[in-house]
């Protein structure tokens, strides 16, 4: 799946807004203006905004770039993701689905990885019944994980699997951190790690890290370990299977038409041979 310049721009913009959507508690700036009441709106603004952003970027990425082969592959891989997620909908930290997302994104590229992350999370949440305002944020985080896996440098063999396992650990931790960031301001309360608007970036970050360590580090580490182990154990055959599928699907087929046997080749009119 190719990413055009417009899609790249939108991806960049979405990423920037997305970072803001997760990390706004650190950025929020308390001033003595008359509108401090609006501070409380920030989380709800993002709850509305992130789905819109996702819709825009997904529409842009899919315009013309998702042909029947890609959409079928997306659907089937999302089903595999969901089948792995169903037994453990993200509560105990054993989340084997991440490794599949990372390996698929690695094989099919970053654009596909981004879309797969979002679609797979959406589909599996529909199946497990986990839809809510948190879903777009999870989708965005998963899409980044997929995008990142597609950006890794080219390598083959054991070093590749080692790199992917390392990426799995990092991405699993970052994903945990991001979703926690989203949740943190909603927890409220007056504990020593609660979000306090206007306390300042450093102080709030400090409180957040404590929150993260105490509430979810265990889950995140389990997720990271699961992912790394699976990449190391299953990486080779699964990568081989995915690469074979990619070869067999012939994503951008070379199509030639010759008018008469032995004549001059002419490119297909409106065929999928042209770059989309």
């Amino acid at each position: 799946m190719r990413i055009g310049s417009r899609s790249s721009f939108l991806l960049l913009l979405t990423t920037l807004f997305g970072i803001a959507a997760f990390a706004w508690p650190l950025m929020i700036h308390q001033s003595s203006g008359p509108n401090t009441a609006h501070n409380g709106d920030a989380p709800w603004v993002f709850v509305g905004l992130v789905p819109l952003l996702l819709a825009i970027v997904m529409a842009e990425l899919s315009e013309g770039a998702i042909d029947a082969k890609a959409v079928a592959l997306l659907g089937i891989l999302a089903a595999c993701f969901a089948a792995l997620r169903v037994p453990s909908p993200g509560i105990n930290g054993f989340e084997p689905e991440w490794f599949l997302l990372i390996l698929s994104a690695r094989v099919f590229g970053r654009g596909f990885g981004f879309v797969l992350g979002a679609v797979a999370f959406f589909a599996s949440s529909l199946i497990t019944g986990g839809v809510g305002p948190w879903l777009p944020f999870q989708m965005l985080a998963a899409a980044w994980v997929g995008f990142g896996a597609g950006c890794l440098p080219s390598m083959r063999g054991f070093p590749e699997r080692l790199m992917l396992a390392g990426y799995g650990v990092v991405s699993a931790l970052v994903y945990g951190l991001l979703t926690n960031f989203w949740f943190w301001p909603f927890v409220g309360g007056s504990t020593t790690y609660s979000f306090v608007p206007g306390l300042g970036t450093i102080a709030n970050l400090h409180r957040f890290i404590l929150f993260d360590l105490t509430t979810s580090m265990g889950f995140d580490l389990t997720r990271a370990a699961t992912c790394a182990v699976l990449v190391l154990v299953l990486g080779r055959p699964v990568l081989a299977a995915l690469r074979r599928a990619s070869r067999r699907a012939v994503f951008e087929p070379q199509i030639e038409f010759i008018d008469q046997a032995g004549g001059e080749p002419t490119p297909a009119l409106g065929g999928r041979g042209d770059p989309s």
Binding site: A55, S62, V71, G75, A82, A118, V119, I127
Partner: peptide, 18 residues
């Protein structure tokens, strides 16, 4: 919405195949 048609098809396929 219609603009997310491709995404919707992929999710439909996923739901049916799981």
């Amino acid at each position: 919405p219609a603009v997310l048609y491709e995404t919707g098809v992929a999710v439909t396929v996923a739901l049916a195949f799981t």
